[in-house]
Write a protein that binds this DNA or RNA. Sequence first.
DNA 1: ATGAGCACATACCAAAAGGTATGTACTGGT
DNA 2: ACCAGTACATACCTTTTGGTATGTGCTCAT
Lengths: 118, 118
Amino acid sequence: MRKRKKVYSCGLEAALAVIGGKWKFLILWTLSNGGARRFGELRRAVTGISEKMLIQELKELELDGIVSRKDFKEVPPRVEYSITPFGAELAIATRPLCEWGTRHIRRIGSLPTQIAAE
Amino acid sequence: MRKRKKVYSCGLEAALAVIGGKWKFLILWTLSNGGARRFGELRRAVTGISEKMLIQELKELELDGIVSRKDFKEVPPRVEYSITPFGAELAIATRPLCEWGTRHIRRIGSLPTQIAAE
DNA sequence: ATGAGCACATACCAAAAGGTATGTACTGGT
DNA sequence: ACCAGTACATACCTTTTGGTATGTGCTCAT
């Protein structure tokens, strides 16, 4: 399902192996603002994500030690996801990049979309 | 070739629209350490990249205002790529994430690779 | 009894990203 | 004459990623 290199040529490459992809950093960002969430809450908070993607990314983030999963063993099921200290450190590290993006979000949105004609 | 959203839900998403992918941040990192490089120099510096990928990423980075291309109009061709101030700002913003990755590079490399059994 | 919500699992498919191979136009070296 | 090197372009193919649809076992509300 997931293939990961064992050797990285720079730290950013290693970091992106952990939060890369379309959804992970949004999940991280959501969880780091407002604490633990249930699966359904996350699904509603991360707009546009499908259940398959959400559970898949959560599993990988859990394996990577970024989020922790707490199952309350209730019925109907009740599970809470939260950020680990390791994940919190990562969230802090992404902040400058996040701010850079926010500062230039208009510029980025208005950049040429296509690079070549069909 | 490239399809880009016009609306981003957070700054990091916008930033990754610009340096996302397998090679761009390596190119940025290479150019930000040591200044301008020729195409061939970059190809040798960014180990593993193909010419197709290099020129493609360079074009997009140029369109995005991250790198600038200078053609010396000589024969044989001589072209130099360098980082713009905009790109330099981006490079600075990636540093904490890069450092986080470097700090935990061993841990990341030893994390489980597979998420599900076949 | 019927449907909704919980937290998933799974099969299948489309799109995007990335890689390989080859070609171009020119020059300089052997 | 032939190969290497310059900086690319292009066609084709594979891998990876992401999306849709559907199912599961359980409970509560209508």
